[in-house]
Simulated scan of single mutants.
Amino acid sequence: MYGQVPGHGQQEPSASQAYLATVQSRLTADGCETRWEDWAGVPVLVGRRADFRMSWMATRLHLFTVAAAVPEITVPAIEGFTEQVMKYAKDNKGGLPVGVQNGIGAFPLLVSDRVDPAAVHWAEAQQRIKFACMTRPVVVDSAQQYVGMYRGKPALGRVYASYFIQKGSQYFYGQ
Results as ranks from 00 to 15, higher is better:
84 Q>T: 08
29 A>H: 07
121 H>F: 06
15 A>K: 02
5 V>G: 05
72 E>H: 13
102 N>K: 05
79 E>P: 05
35 R>V: 08
52 F>S: 13
3 G>R: 07
24 Q>N: 09
42 V>R: 15
15 A>D: 04
77 A>Q: 14
60 R>L: 10
19 Y>A: 07
145 Q>P: 03
106 A>C: 14
45 L>F: 10
130 K>S: 14
106 A>T: 13
32 C>D: 14
118 A>C: 06
169 S>M: 06
160 Y>W: 04
136 R>F: 03
105 G>D: 07
35 R>G: 10
84 Q>V: 03
16 S>Y: 02
158 R>E: 12
163 Y>Q: 04
64 F>V: 11
78 I>Q: 01
45 L>Y: 10
162 S>C: 00
89 A>I: 11
102 N>Y: 05
135 T>M: 09
4 Q>Y: 08
173 Y>A: 09
120 V>I: 10
33 E>F: 07
87 K>V: 14
61 L>R: 14
52 F>W: 14
123 A>K: 03
69 A>D: 14
37 E>W: 03
171 Y>R: 03
126 Q>K: 15
53 R>Q: 14
63 L>Y: 08
144 Q>D: 01
162 S>A: 12
35 R>E: 13
61 L>S: 11
116 D>H: 01
107 F>N: 04
15 A>Y: 02
29 A>F: 04
149 M>T: 03
84 Q>R: 14
33 E>M: 10
112 S>H: 04
169 S>Q: 12
